[in-house]
């Protein structure tokens, strides 16, 4: 637990991360042991390992952190969280960094925000996600060249009845939209 008196000794960015991540107060206990960076299935692709990110957060290097590719390498597999000897909610911190990075327009060089946006737009419209619509739209707007590579695979999927051409729609889309709009209006994390 952190107490009022020590909170003042954290960098502004560290306070921000702790406040906007469920369980984020545990971050103060980081030993810089690197079990997160060593465990990550995509760790080799990261500009900075999660451990290094935590050090940068403590040093208030907000811009560098939010512009890095680290959180965009995260696939939310929770292996780092499982292994962290200090029970730091690392995956949740990655979500927080993703949110902040998108909100501030710093998530360049990754297609993840576009994928996320396309996905949730579909959900907001229909109430259900829709793999074909997601894939076609996402690839058409973001990776048109990939559509050719995907073609063969898509065909195999289609012939096996695994691709639906039209979205399923829930009955009460308006109710879902009202909930989403209200949530957006209240805003913010915990």
């Amino acid at each position: 637990m952190i107490t009022e008196t020590t909170e003042g000794h954290r960098s502004a960015f560290m306070r921000e991360v702790m406040a906007e991540t469920p369980g984020g107060e545990q971050l103060v206990h980081c030993l810089q042991c690197g079990s997160c960076g060593g465990s990550c299935p995509n760790g080799a692709d990261m500009e900075f390992t999660p451990r290094a990110i935590f050090s940068m957060i403590a040093a208030n290097r907000r811009h560098e952190v939010l512009a890095s590719n680290t959180m965009w390498c995260c696939v939310s597999c929770y292996l780092c969280t499982t292994r962290c000897p200090q029970e730091i909610p690392i995956t949740e911190i990655m979500y927080m960094l993703k949110r902040t990075s998108i909100a501030e327009g710093m998530a360049t060089g990754t297609d993840a925000p576009a994928l996320a946006r396309t996905f949730t737009d579909l959900v907001e419209k229909h109430g259900r996600s829709f793999e074909f619509g997601l894939a076609s739209r996402y690839y058409f707007f973001n990776k048109p060249m990939s559509l050719f590579k995907m073609g063969g695979m898509g065909f195999s999927m289609f012939t096996r009845g695994r691709i639906q051409l039209l979205p399923n729609k829930i009955r009460q889309v308006d109710q879902l939209q009202a909930i989403i709009n209200k949530a957006k209006e209240i805003g913010g994390a915990s």
Binding site: Y95, R99, F119, T120, L176, A183, G188, S190
Partner: peptide, 19 residues
């Protein structure tokens, strides 16, 4: 409705959990 997978959590935690 759709659970939002991991995609809402990268945008807005409250929307993600409300959905």
């Amino acid at each position: 409705n759709c659970c939002g997978a991991t995609e809402y959590f990268t945008q807005d935690e409250l929307v993600a959990t409300s959905v």
